[in-house]
Design a protein around this nucleic acid. Structure first.
Lengths: 216, 216
DNA sequence: CGCTCATGTTAACAGCATAAACATGTGGAG
DNA sequence: CTCCACATGTTTATGCTGTTAACATGAGCG
C-alpha cells in the first residue's frame, strides 16, 4: 500500500508548512515534485481572490509536462485537497498562536476570532479553498482523511474558548454562534460586501456576549 | 440605447420572479430566448450545491445551438449576473415576507435571520452565486447595476431590524454582527460543516443579544 | 550487469468559452 | 405588396482545459 497517491499525505514530504527544504529523501527525475507542486500551488493561489488553479499552468511553471502531476495526484481535485489541507494547517497555526498569546478566556475568544477574520482577509483564496474542499471530502470517500481531522481540531478549539460556566447545549450554541460570526464576517469582507476595517472587526467580535443570559 | 444586452435587465421580460409565462411581447425565432435561458438556468442551478452552469449544456437543453446565447448575453459572466440578480430578488422577497409576518421588532429580527438561513439551505447554489457575482460587479464596471442596488436594500433591511434604542456606531456594529451571523451560519451548513437543524438555527440566531451592553 | 518500476513525456480525446462568417425570417419603409 | 435591414440563430473554427493511453528514461536493487 504505502502512498498510493490517492489519500492526501503531506507528512510524507518534509515539513511543508514551514518551507520547502528542497530535496531530502524522495528525489527522482525532477526532485520531490509532489511537494514542489503543492508549494508552487500555494504560492500561486495565495495571490488570488478565488482559488483558480490550472494543472497545465502549474506544470508549466514547474517546468514539467502537463501530465506529470498525474504521477502524484490522481486528478485535480486531489491536488486541491492537498492544498486545502496545507491551508487548513496554516490557519490552525495562526489560531493556536493567537490563543496562546491571550491572557484570560474572554480576551482569548476575541483575539482568536479577530485572527480568524484577519487570516481570511490575508488569504482569501485559501479560506475559500478550505471550505470548498472540506464539504466534498467526507461525502465521497469513506476515508476520514486528515482534512476532517484538522477541521475537528479547529472546531474543538472554538468550543474550548467558550466560558465553562455554560454547559451542554449552551456551549454548543455559543460555539456555533462564534464560528458563524467570524466566518460570516470574513466571507462578507472577501465578497466585497463589507470593507475591511480591523477596528470594526474587533468591535463586531467583541459584541458577541457569551456568559450572560442565553436563549429560552 | 434601450436594451443593448449588456446591462442586466430582467424587468424587460415578463415578471420572471413569478414564473415563465411563455411568450408575450418579444417572440422572434425561438421565442424570448433570453428569459427562457434565465429560467432554465435557474432551474438547472437550483438543484446544485455549487453553481456550475455550462453555456453549451444550457443551450442543448433549450434546443438551440451552442452560441445562440451570445445574442442575448455578451459572455457567460453576464448570464451568471442575470441569474444572480434573479436569485437576489427571490431572496429579497423571502426576507420581506418574513419581516412583515413578524409582530415586534425583536421577533422580526429572529424570523428574518432564520429565514435567511433557511432560504440559503434550500437554495445553496443561488446564495453562492449571489455572493460570487456581487463582488465582481462593482469593481470592474462603473455601472452601479441593479445588483448593487438590490443588495443595498438587503443591507438596509437588516439595519432597520436593529432596535432603535441604539444609535450610530452601535447600530452599524449590531447590523454587521447580525448579517455575519446568519450568513456565516448558512455558509457553514452549506459547506457541510454544520448539519442543518432548524431548531438549532433558531437558537443560535436568538442568542444574538442586541440592545444590552455593547463593546467599549 | 541488468531488470523493474516509479517517474516524466508525447499524443490524443472530449469538453469548454468564445469569435467570425454565414443563414434566416420578421418588421418596418417605400 | 415588395423589399431591405437587422435581430436572431447556426456553422465553423480557435485555443484553452482536464484526463487517458502509450511510450521513454533513469535510479535503485538483486
Amino acid at each position: 500500500m504505502s502512498v498510493k497517491g490517492n489519500s492526501v499525505n503531506i507528512k510524507d514530504s518534509p515539513e511543508l508548512s514551514g518551507k520547502v527544504s528542497g530535496k531530502s529523501s524522495g528525489a527522482y527525475h525532477h526532485g520531490d515534485l509532489r511537494a514542489t507542486a503543492i508549494a508552487a500551488g500555494m504560492t500561486r493561489i495565495a495571490d488570488m481572490a478565488h482559488p483558480d488553479l490550472g494543472l497545465r499552468a502549474l506544470a508549466r511553471e514547474l517546468g514539467v509536462s502537463a501530465t506529470a502531476l498525474y504521477r502524484h495526484f490522481p486528478n485535480k481535485d486531489a491536488l486541491l485537497d492537498a492544498l486545502a489541507l496545507e491551508a487548513l494547517n496554516r490557519l490552525g497555526i495562526s489560531q493556536s498562536e493567537a490563543a496562546q498569546a491571550a491572557s484570560d478566556v474572554r480576551e482569548g475568544f476575541v483575539d482568536v476570532g479577530v485572527t480568524y477574520v484577519q487570516w481570511s482577509v490575508e488569504n482569501p483564496a485559501l479560506v475559500r479553498l478550505i471550505y470548498d474542499r472540506v464539504g466534498k471530502v467526507d461525502l465521497e470517500t469513506d476515508d476520514p482523511s486528515e482534512m476532517g481531522e484538522a477541521f475537528l481540531q479547529l472546531r474543538k478549539g472554538i468550543t474550548a474558548l467558550m466560558p465553562d460556566t455554560m454547559s451542554g447545549e449552551q456551549r454548543t450554541v455559543a460555539a456555533l454562534h462564534a464560528w458563524s460570526l467570524v466566518h460570516g464576517l470574513a466571507m462578507l469582507i472577501l465578497d466585497g460586501q463589507v470593507e475591511y476595517d480591523p477596528q470594526m472587526v474587533r468591535k463586531v467580535v467583541e459584541s458577541a456576549e457569551f456568559g450572560s443570559k442565553n436563549s429560552g
